[in-house]
Amino acid sequence: MIQVKNLVRTFKSGDRTIKPVNDVSFELEQGTLASIVGKSGSGKSTLLSLLGALDKPTSGDVVVNGVSLASMPDGKLTEYRRRDIGFVFQQFNLIPNLSAVDNVMLPMEFAGVRKSVRLARAKELLEQVQLDPEKHVRRINRLSGGEQQRVAIARALANEPKLILADEPTGNLDEQTGEHIIELLSSLSRDHNTTILVVTHDRQLANKTDRRFRLQQGRLTEEPARARVAAAATA
């Protein structure tokens, strides 16, 4: 379970103070598939960074399964990112001189997984995201944007994290592959009890999530999910 308590993140820009995340609080049960929508620059990625322990809040706290991230030392935060978090970055952030399979194996290497095990799992994950097997050993800089996005998603799933934070995971994918990725994330949430928080402009993806949040000028509001709205209307 993730509890976000009065989270604030401010930046100084000259004389001005910017608050991309302003007193945000919410809770997510384990296994929830949630989305955050909002305009560009509304603070979506900053909030994701705070939840993923990439950044430290100015005030407030994130509590994961009863453990406060604010009180964790850097070493423990690294371990938390390695063990509990899977990131899908908007710009993929893959290592360019490594192959697709090597990129997917990296988080497992850091987690101390044996080479044979991580190689088998990396191939399995790349197949799940529908990357052509012959491209598994191809260098990242020789893959298309959509292929790189699928490798990035596979990498996020490598250590079977409890929380996946995805920034525009279907942004560079064609409709069919996007559909498949949405289905993959849904099944992970449903079958593996993985909490998934997706930042997206994709209405189709947002509508398929259990909970939908809107971030506007740093403040988070929850929108009723379309499914729930429909269910309430029929009741």
Partner: peptide, 16 residues
């Protein structure tokens, strides 16, 4: 620097 940041983001320890 960016690559180092990515490695840290996915859980690489400083010593590695």
């Amino acid at each position: 620097r960016r690559e180092i940041g990515v490695l840290k983001a996915i859980g690489a320890p400083n010593r590695t």
